[in-house]
């Protein structure tokens, strides 16, 4: 969610540049900006409090001031010295990375096939995939659990990952983007003797890098922040992902918010990195496909 908030405010900043004094006080404009401002505040406040709390002493955490009276990095030292944090961090990293790679590959393979090949039952497959988009995770958790139990996947990386190795949304997204790849491009490669798999990989995929980047961001963030399913499928603390693990900072007598917030603040670092890295590809990709072949 936070990335959307950032985007909105960046866009509004740009829009404000060609400043027009005559229109400045127009009521519609005032209302629009007020709503946007409030929206921005709502988006940003939790993040601000997360950061602020992570620098507070335990006795200060229910005090709503943003700048702590007596800031400390004690929480960071504690979290980083606690071996569990690393373990969970690595777990999350492994799971999010593998699901991202897997989803990008399989979603685009299926999307490409649905987009560029005509075969019997194509529409049925497509509609079936789309319809799964309408079922919320909460409803799928029980069948997933039964499945994982019957196959013996409880308490394993695979058990956490398997629902995410392919996504309906990604398949749909990639299918739509492959529509923009001209058939000529694929046919030319076919005449040059490439097989269908090579055509997909060397011709089609490089032309949809913006979609791949967007999908990679979505899938990575989705799996990095996933909570319900990893919580249900694991009960071995060594297998917890970061979001699940962080909540266990609270099981002892008191909820140790300052530690949870510190862990959460640290947990946003990889998401920021992923976003910054792939965002550049989105921009580059847009520039590239903008060239008319």
């Amino acid at each position: 969610m936070s990335d959307i908030g950032i985007k909105t405010s960046a866009a509004s900043l740009n829009a404000a540049k060609p400043y027009n004094y005559n229109k400045r006080m127009e009521p519609a404009r005032v209302i629009r900006w007020t709503i946007l401002f409030l929206g921005g505040v709502v988006m940003v406040m939790p993040i601000v409090f997360m950061l602020s709390t992570s620098f507070k002493w335990p006795h200060e955490i229910y005090n709503l001031m943003i700048i702590p009276d007596d800031p400390t990095i004690e929480n960071y030292t504690y979290v980083l010295e606690d071996g569990r944090f690393y373990k969970w961090f690595i777990n999350s990293l492994i799971i999010a990375t593998i699901t991202t790679i897997s989803a990008v590959i399989f979603d685009s393979l299926v999307g490409y096939t649905l987009c560029k090949f005509r075969f019997r039952g194509r529409m049925i497959v497509f509609v079936a995939i789309l319809s799964t988009l309408m079922i919320p995770t909460e409803m799928l958790v029980i069948p997933w659990y039964l499945m994982a139990r019957d196959f013996g996947w409880l308490n394993s990386y695979w058990g956490i990952m398997f629902p995410g190795v392919m996504t309906a949304f990604g398949t749909f997204l990639m299918k739509q983007f492959f529509e923009s790849v001209p058939d000529d491009f694929l046919e030319a490669a076919r005449i040059d003797g490439l097989n269908e798999f090579q055509i997909w990989w060397t011709v089609a995929m490089p032309l949809v890098t913006p979609a791949i980047s967007a999908l990679a961001i979505f899938v990575f963030l989705g799996n990095w922040t996933a909570f319900i399913w990893p919580l249900i499928v694991t009960n071995d603390p060594a297998l917890y992902t970061l979001p699940v693990g962080l909540t266990t900072f609270s099981v002892e007598q008191d909820v140790e918010w300052e530690l949870i917030m510190t862990g959460a603040a640290l947990a946003t670092i990889p998401t920021l990195i992923v976003f910054l890295v792939f965002q550049r590809y989105i921009i580059r990709g847009v520039v590239m496909t903008g060239l008319k072949g």
Partner: peptide
């Protein structure tokens, strides 16, 4: 025969050269 087995080459109206 598949296109590649025919040993032909084709030039398309939109060139079909790869921008990347």
């Amino acid at each position: 025969l598949e296109p590649k087995e025919r040993n032909i080459a084709m030039v398309f109206q939109n060139y079909a050269i790869y921008p990347h």
